[in-house]
Nucleic acid binder design. Structure first.
Lengths: 340, 340
DNA sequence: AGCTGTATCATTACTGGTAACATTATACAA
DNA sequence: TTGTATAATGTTACCAGTAATGATACAGCT
């Protein structure tokens, strides 16, 4: 079917091994032979069978990436960050979605490991820790991205969610807000907790009581945000005097849903209530009003993770000393937050 | 390192081959032995080395997907459609972005083929036909998605762009519009051409002259849309009497840019000019005004493509008879188009 | 008893590439 | 002249599976 080393060897009357070494620029093959081999390989259209060389070298030249949902721009930008760094190498990427489901996450990981990937990037769905056991047992370098397992020591890259929460609180406080609603993702997700902690930390600096912040949890989706905000609004005794003047949303998705709920009650953003999102989705400047939000720089997270991965692969680092990289988020000022 | 067939064989005192056949439920292995082998494999945590079995079977259990940009929701939803169908099998997916660049497209394809993928899904960047030669030479089943090479015969799935253009024209015409601007992607992209043809076809039915439609080309990005729309607006002799009352945009991205340009000139959508997009991005109902657009059902395109792929892989179809699937788009009515 | 068939398992030979080791030839020094 | 270093290449074994073929034991039949 396709051209193999043997075909080239036969063509030139040399051994397969010589061809193999010539193509890999090994020093003990004569320059003339090397050139001849390469020319012949090119002429015959030889392509290396990577699976075969994997058997011997145990280097598959593949990396796996598992994310909750590639349709979420946060993760697709992370993917491209990783890909960008990989493009300079010859690594190819496998992608899998966990859909936030631990079983799917495990299944996808198993598949990738069976294929012999040289490393794994994982944004964990955080609903169990089985995937870590898998990764550890597989004895493969891996980088955990964005969400952290408590107590787990591993190479890890994330946006500084604490700082993001802090920034959000600071921004709202400076606009004069003193009562807040935090619509969070479930608190078992580390970033939800971290953002909360950062948010509270700033307020504490300003001597605000904890009771200044109400917390509600929902799925980080538009529907989730819509439902929880609607419920909250329904429970308000007086729509002209809300129990919070600003809503801090776990994601821009949630904020979109919150927008819809607010519109349903004929309230205005930011006149009646301010809304701040998180993630800076590509379209959040197109919403009405344009959404103030926090950019986590997912592309940078991806690039940083990939660099870490290659450091591990190249053995520049792997001896049990785990590195954690934290990337500072950016406040993006738009029109959905205003003076009280 | 990891458990192999040999480990199981040694443990049980049988041959490697027996283990291999037992695990694959071959009939010539005794039931007792089969059970024993399976138990032992489970106990030892055996995982098949897929690369090794690929060498002999030439089935890698991997499929490759190449798209222009996974950050574009159209393509990420296609990806998930494909993945959805693959989840029922044991296929794992490789993903690569071409970034609209033929060289990157070729490089990514080569990488995937070197890894021995059993099939390729390609949304071509349309700037050359080299990738097709690659695919043909590789002798691997492939499905071309969404964009069609003229004269090429291959399995192909796309949204019916002609119909989409037709729907857009119909909608605008029925609102009373008689002069149009089509902001297109470059016409070498088949879908740009098809949408144009459909658009014109409807207008022709209504006896409108070709001159009723102005055409401008730009990259299918927000910036592209913004620049071209701004230029067009600058060239208008009278902003109170525009030379077109409705803009048909190649994508929602372009429409967002167009929105910005229109806002810059202090015109209103849809009072001063109607805008219709294409793709129905996830957020297009959140824009202001909410964007009327055409949904191409990318998830369905993905699922359909995957089914085609498995038909080819299972040899239900491959003997030169190429199938083309066309999926009807849907008009999504929102607020950016209005009566003239 | 001897033959045949079947069920069950083992042997052997591959897949395509790589690593360790062996071989050959040439050059140069002792 | 002989030994040895060095450059250049060939041999062989191996990676983890799978396919083709071979071997053995036992049952059933004539």
């Amino acid at each position: 079917m396709s051209i193999t080393l043997k075909d080239i060897a036969d063509e030139l009357g040399v051994s397969v091994n010589t061809v193999s070494r010539a193509l890999r620029n090994m020093p003990d093959i004569g320059q003339e032979t090397t050139n001849l081999v390469k020319e012949t390989a090119a002429r015959l259209g030889y392509r290396k069978n990577l699976a075969a060389s994997y058997l011997k070298t145990t280097k598959s030249m593949m990396l796996g990436i598992v994310v909750p949902d590639i349709c979420n721009p946060v993760f697709s930008y992370m993917y491209k960050g990783i890909e960008k760094v990989c493009a300079e190498t010859n690594y190819t990427l496998m992608l899998g979605n966990s859909n936030g489901n631990p079983d799917e996450e495990s299944a996808v990981l198993s598949n990738m490991l069976d294929h012999g990937v040289d490393g794994i990037f994982l944004v964990p769905c955080m609903k169990n820790t089985q995937s870590h056991a898998q990764l550890e047992n597989a004895n493969v370098p891996y980088v955990i991205m964005q969400r952290k397992f408590p107590g787990l020591s591993a190479n890890f890259v994330q946006s500084n969610d604490y700082e993001g929460g802090y920034l959000a609180a600071q921004h709202l406080y400076q606009l004069g807000h003193r009562s807040f609603l935090y619509i969070s993702a479930p608190m078992y997700i580390s970033s939800a907790r971290d953002r909360y902690d950062g948010f509270m930390a700033y307020l504490k600096e300003k001597d605000l009581a904890e009771s200044a912040v109400q917390i509600l949890e929902c799925d980080s989706t538009r529907t989730g945000g819509y439902k929880i905000a609607r419920k909250w609004l329904e429970q308000q005794t007086d729509l002209n005097s809300l129990s919070a003047t600003a809503i801090f949303c776990f994601s821009d998705y949630v904020a979109y849903g919150v927008y819809s709920a607010i519109a349903k009650f004929h309230l205005r953003v930011p006149e009646d209530i301010s809304v701040i999102g998180y993630d800076n989705n590509e379209y959040s400047d197109m919403t009405f009003p344009a959404l103030t939000t926090i950019d986590i720089l997912p592309n940078k997270i991806g690039r940083q993770s990939a660099k870490m991965m290659f450091d591990m692969i190249d053995k520049k680092a792997d001896n049990g000393t785990h590195i954690e990289a934290v990337i500072s988020p950016k406040l993006i000022l738009r029109d959905s937050t205003g003076q009280i």
